[in-house]
């Protein structure tokens, strides 16, 4: 499914181009290389990485309904970008990215610390607290941005969309993709973690190390996506949930499927966003948010019945 979508993505945009145009027309070729291919790759990388990071976060938080982008990590990344822009306005993109990654790590760590004392018997409490936590950081970002007259600047990071993707401006996403791939390498350890902290230690797992590695992967992914595209919510929530329902949580098997499904979701909605109001675009985060919110509610309402 990803293959045909990717090909489709190359042909859809404000400027119509035919296959012949891509092959023979130098302008068409340039469009392909500078815009269409990077945009397609960005959608695939971001979708795959976001879905995997959601899956990892759900293991670390021991709850199915937590998703980094809405639970503080995404907002912390925006905070990092804001801090970078205010304190070091002239700094290069990699420095912004590093600061964003660090604040995201701090934000995710904070979330885990807040979630830890919550009773496992109330599974719906966790996503609520996580959403409030994300909302708090979001409010803080907005407040600081308002004071500094940078609301508009911050706004661009809060809504993820791919229309600005050009060659040379999306490559950080390869880092996100790399972080997701690294998760697959430690998939067995992460699955052992999902048995619970005591059981995992009983099997000789260094739970602190694995938690740390997972958090770093989640933070890098989230920060890179926010820095390059802006926040894209719900991908990390609905994709892992649907994958777990169908094939379980053995991550060695599940992560590739999660990554592929996430890529399909983001690429598919991006194409849809390009088509619906052509030649204008609907941001991918808006469409995914619409779809995701509906699926999220559905999952919340049906999960307790099954868990009992």
């Amino acid at each position: 499914m990803l293959g045909p979508l990717a090909v489709l993505s190359l042909f859809i945009g404000a400027v119509p181009v035919s296959l012949g145009g891509f092959l023979h027309d130098p302008e068409g070729q340039q469009l392909l290389l500078v815009s269409r291919i990077p945009r397609t790759l960005a959608a695939i990388l971001a979708g795959a990485a976001l879905a995997v990071s959601g899956q990892i976060m759900q293991i670390l938080a021991r709850n199915r309904f937590v998703e980094p982008m809405t639970a503080g990590a995404g907002q912390s990344a925006a905070m990092g970008i804001l801090i970078a822009a205010m304190l070091f306005p002239a700094t290069a993109i990699w420095a912004k990215m590093s600061i964003a990654a660090l604040t995201t790590l701090a934000g995710s760590l904070g979330l885990l610390l807040i979630l830890r004392p919550l009773p496992p018997t109330l599974p719906l409490l966790v996503p609520l607290v996580a959403l409030i936590y994300g909302g708090l950081i979001d409010g803080l970002v907005t407040f600081i941005a308002f004071q500094a007259d940078m609301l508009q600047y911050v706004g661009t990071w809060m809504t993820g969309e791919l229309s600005g993707v050009l060659a040379g401006r999306y490559e950080l996403l390869w880092l996100a993709g790399g972080a997701a791939a690294a998760c697959w390498i430690i998939a067995d350890r992460l699955t052992v973690m999902s048995l619970g902290e005591d059981a995992a230690r009983g099997l000789g797992l260094n739970t602190k190390l694995v938690t740390g590695a997972g958090l770093v992967a989640v933070s890098i992914t989230t920060a890179m996506v926010v820095v390059t595209l802006g926040a894209i919510p719900f991908v990390g929530l609905i994709v892992p949930n649907i994958v777990a329902r169908r094939m379980g949580d053995n991550l060695r098997r599940a992560i590739p499927v999660t990554a592929l499904s996430g890529a399909v979701l983001v690429l598919g909605t991006d194409i849809l966003g390009r088509v619906l109001r052509a030649p204008y675009e609907i941001p991918v985060s808006t469409l995914v948010g619409l779809l995701g919110a509906a699926v999220f509610l559905y999952l919340l309402y049906r999960e307790p019945a099954r868990a009992a």
């Binding site: 293991i59 021991r62 709850n63 199915r64 496992p120 599974p123 699955t191 999902s194 048995l195 619970g196 005591d198 059981a199 230690r201 009983g202 099997l203 000789g204 797992l205 260094n206 777990a244 329902r245 379980g248 949580d249 053995n250």
Partner: peptide
């Protein structure tokens, strides 16, 4: 932990596992 895990197995009080395995 690694060494001990080959000598001692634990079955914790709550075997409620949220993971779908």
């Amino acid at each position: 932990d690694r060494v001990l895990a080959r000598h001692l197995a634990i079955m914790a009080q709550s075997t409620h596992v949220s993971a779908r395995l």
